[in-house]
């Protein structure tokens, strides 16, 4: 299964949701933000090299969670250089994601912001998508546009994440969002542990398993699994 974590707008927390959801699912998280990558990288080949035909996709996957008791998942990081972004061919992403899926089973793609092909191709390749939005009206408008793109590309929407919620959303608001975007809504409260989870290599499901944010991620992972088993 290939799951796209998308959202239209930048800075709404797509990468943190993708990383934590990937850990919860035991998937490989692919950082497909070719121009502005977020997920941590380490020495070795990355997605820029893979999409330029210079490296094998499977060799670029890093294993995470080697410590005992922590979730085991993978990360395929992306390079940071502009030259690398320019040399990367986004049309090659389809075969790369399919190859990673064949080897590792589940793939979570952290999509870039915007409505260009770098956001569209992973969405087109994915079996289903999770839409991340911030609880502000203007961010919701971008989520609606991305929802339309996903629909056009025949990608099913498994869930909507309203991320970094400070004041509890009213049932009415949640219903409106769910109705507008056409998928069940998961709210993830603003929690500093979510923000540092990537930098500290500690996914929420391990670091703060009983937090409400981790609960949201687990709920989302369950929705993805149930979609997959359908």
């Amino acid at each position: 299964m290939i799951l796209a974590v998308t959202g239209g707008k930048g800075g709404v927390g797509k990468s943190t949701v993708a990383y934590n959801l990937g850990a919860a699912l035991g998937a490989v998280v692919v950082d497909a933000d070719l121009g502005m990558a977020d997920l941590p990288t380490s020495p070795g080949s990355d997605l820029h090299d893979v999409l330029a035909g210079r490296a094998d996709p499977l060799e670029a996957v890093r294993s995470m969670g080697a410590d005992e008791g922590s979730s085991s998942f993978g990360v395929l990081p992306c390079g940071r250089s502009l030259a690398g972004a320019r040399a990367a061919d986004v049309t090659a992403l389809a075969t790369v994601l399919e190859q990673v899926e064949r080897e590792f089973g589940a793939v979570v793609v952290d999509c870039p912001a915007g409505m260009r092909a770098d956001a569209g191709v992973p969405l087109a390749v994915a079996d289903c998508a999770v839409l991340v939005a911030s609880p502000r009206p203007f961010a919701l408008a971008d989520a609606v546009r991305t929802r339309a793109l996903a629909r056009e590309l025949d990608t099913a929407l498994v869930g909507v994440v309203v991320n970094r919620v400070v004041d509890e959303l009213s049932t009415e608001t949640v219903e409106t969002v769910a109705e507008t975007l056409g998928a069940p809504v998961t709210t993830i409260p603003a929690d500093p542990r979510v923000a540092v989870s990537i930098a500290e290599h500690s996914p929420l499901v391990d670091a703060a398993a009983s937090s409400r944010a981790a609960e949201g991620i687990t709920q989302l992972a369950a929705a993805v699994r149930s979609y997959q088993s359908r």
Binding site: L34, G35, A85, R86, A88, V90, T91, P112, G114, M115, R116, A117, D118, A119, G120, V121, A124, L153
Partner: peptide
């Protein structure tokens, strides 16, 4: 998708 949305290179 590239034809319709354009590359973001």
């Amino acid at each position: 998708v590239v034809r319709r949305l354009g590359r973001a290179t």
